[in-house]
Design a protein around this nucleic acid. Structure first.
Lengths: 247, 247
DNA sequence: GTCATCGACTTGTTCGGACAAGTGATTCCG
DNA sequence: CGGAATCACTTGTCCGAACAAGTCGATGAC
């Protein structure tokens, strides 16, 4: 957080959370913020642009910016790492590897990881919980160049993302997520201790390095009622997209 | 699309979709793009910033930008309007109002719509379908100042958003969505023609005007397998947030 | 009283410049 | 041959300025 515009964005976020700028009210003008923080208008605009994409404030030409909400959106690390997210929520995360083996890449693996079919991949099945209760079933497929590092992790590793960062400096930089709902299959039900057919929230994602190289893809299934996802959008930018289901 | 940086962003999007900049490859440098389009570097940066938040390209200081994917994300209108989204997918949307009545606002209504408890609101129950098949059950609550316009709509109105825009110039500008999975209740099951307990993807959202005034909130339940949501994020920006479930 | 006009104010767009910070290939040295 | 240092290149940050475009309240005409 060295950049000045990030500092300002953070201060504005906190001010909104404190109620200094109430929901439905307006933010100070760019000129006033420039003077207050002693920066140029461009720097202020970078800061408020961040809050806008987060959905905290709305922006229209000619009118002051409006505070839309004070919901706190977790950081990327918290989003991508179940353990760090749980920690931020004041909950205790658990995790256990149930199965782990190497196999040749299927066509699906090859497409998602940008490798050739038949190349070796590492498949991992994990169950994760909050405060001892199972919450999430995670099926991961890692590219071969990651496999060694993942296999070295202990079976009860809490935070895979953090462990890989400390171990080999691996950073998970980008992710694409597809969200839908499915019924629990036989294996899902047994491992998550729910009835077959129970609704599960499914998130399928592909993660890449900062250089754009795919690291892994994953199929996460959350027990209904344990976790929800929040997304904000505006007429100017919509990170979220609805797609017809081809299951 | 008057702004030059938006034009450039659109051209870059199309170039990526055409395969001119293949996935895994790099984009030209900012300097080169500046020269090509005859604009300053700042304008180019605004354009590529848009593609970055969409998750199409990755960005790291010192290195050229990387193409992450060419998935096309729908426009805001398509996201917010079931009808417009269906049209863009080449499907036919249907819709029917099952129930519509005014009632006093509950505490939940009041909080979400920023009104006082007891103020009048308009509740609407709609079922919507694709190509004749029911797909989505929609429970809407509109603020009183919108009620008249909504009531004037025909019961089989396909696109509520578009009708309200043409009728009174109402624009849905911001939205916040909470996504989770639930089991179909008795009413859900009957109206959607699925078994009780079937998994449904639930989207709860609040929509506001450009000025930040809440218009309506909604509880949408999609039949599993018919629709999925996609979101992209990066280490620098994450519109998506995971939250512990208090259902 | 109602409505149109006006004008101060605010955000959006774009330019040009300067420097900091990080990357990646090359070069050089042991 | 391997690894460290170098260096050109690229993106990130920040400044200051100017004008366009839209909002919103006040003013004034009818």
């Amino acid at each position: 957080m060295a950049a000045r515009h990030e500092e300002i964005a953070q201060e504005l976020r906190q001010a909104i959370d404190r109620g200094e700028y109430p929901v439905g009210g307006t933010l100070p003008t760019e000129t006033e913020l420039s003077a207050r923080y002693g920066v140029s208008r461009g720097t202020v605009r970078q800061a408020v642009a961040a809050l806008t994409t987060e959905g905290r404030i709305g922006s229209r030409q000619g009118a002051r910016r409006v505070v839309l909400g004070n919901r706190r959106s977790q950081s990327f690390a918290e989003l991508r790492s179940f353990a760090q997210w749980a920690h931020a929520m004041g909950r205790t995360a658990t995790g256990r590897v149930l199965d782990q083996h190497r196999r040749p890449a299927t066509l699906e693996d090859a497409e998602k990881l940008q490798i050739k079919p038949g190349d070796e991949v590492l498949q991992v099945l994990r169950v994760r919980g909050l405060d001892g209760e199972p919450v999430l079933l995670e099926r991961n497929v890692y590219a071969a160049w990651m496999a060694d590092s993942v296999e070295r992790l202990p079976a009860d590793c809490i935070s895979v993302v953090q462990a890989l960062y400390e171990d080999i400096g691996m950073i998970f930089a980008y992710g694409e997520h597809v969200i839908d709902a499915v019924a629990a299959g036989a294996e899902d039900a047994r491992l998550l201790e729910v009835r077959r057919g129970s609704p599960l929230l499914r998130i399928r994602r592909v993660t890449t390095t900062p250089a754009g190289r795919p690291i892994e893809w994953s199929d996460d299934r959350y027990i209904s009622g344990t976790v929800s996802f929040t997304v904000a959008n505006s007429i100017g930018s919509n990170p979220l997209a609805r797609q017809a289901g081809q299951a």
